[in-house]
Amino acid sequence: MSMVEDAQVLPVTPKAQKRTNRPTSRGRLIFAKLARTPRFWVGTLTLLVIVLWALFGLAFYAYNATSQDVMSMNTAPTGNHWFGTDEIGGDIYAQTVVGLRKSLLIGFVVGPVSALLAGFIGALAGYLGGVWDRVIVWFIDLLLVLPALYILIMLYPLIKGGSWVIVMVYLAIFSWMILARVIRAQTSSLRDRDFVKAARFMGVKTSTIIRRHIIPNVSSLLIIDATLGVGAAILTETTLSYFGFGVQPPDVSLGTLLSSGTGAATTRPWLFIFPAAILVITVLATSLAGDALRDAVDPTSGANRD
């Protein structure tokens, strides 16, 4: 701490005498701290491996997700069928790889997008206050009370032919509201904090204030929500598939694999265990990386306290 003491007794001089090396920007500081966190590397490298596997896992594999090997139905994992087969001879390994692609896409789009939506809409309502706040909150509450699944069922005729992309949009639209209300409440207390007032008196634009001050100060919540949202979206998609939306046969996702494999979990565990394990690993790796990110944006958190 000697540096701190020295600083206070520095003489007051009118001009800067020495050129200093460039100060590090916030982005770089955050990244530097991330890079020093093992959790971050474990999380991201695991995710990277999973993504690469989803992309190239079938490159040197004899079967694909739709192929049926009538010679071996209901077999446990073998050298031929790495994760075994189902009752019609479908290869579980290939299905898992293909399903993973879809699930990753759904999870990693829906989780972050809904957190971002929540962040911006909540922050906007909380920061602007007054009429805007009331209108936005009214809208949020409306979305909250709407029976979301019912709407989807009503729209079914319209979206029947549509792909699972619609499900993604649907999931993103109906999952940000509660967090948005939390963020709004936090923002309205942040708004009265002196540093936000100070920015306003400097003439900083509203959008900049939200981006520079509000969002980073509520980011812990956003990051937690985004990472949890990844897993939640993957699982919700399962429910929807069950009702006949989203990913439909012969297309597969981790969700559909899991739901069809659950019944056989005790008798033919390979139908269930492999997709489930991949899902758990994905979710864990995401929250590990998310956790590291949250610590990195919070300057007062453990690692760089000295």
Binding site: S25, R26, F195, M202, V204, R212, P216, D298, T300
Partner: peptide, 26 residues
Amino acid sequence: VVFQDPMASIDPRLPVHDVIAEPLTV
């Protein structure tokens, strides 16, 4: 303006350089 509480008047999540430079960005 300089505020009363130095804890409250400086964004805890902004490095000091960005804090001081903020009025200039406008």
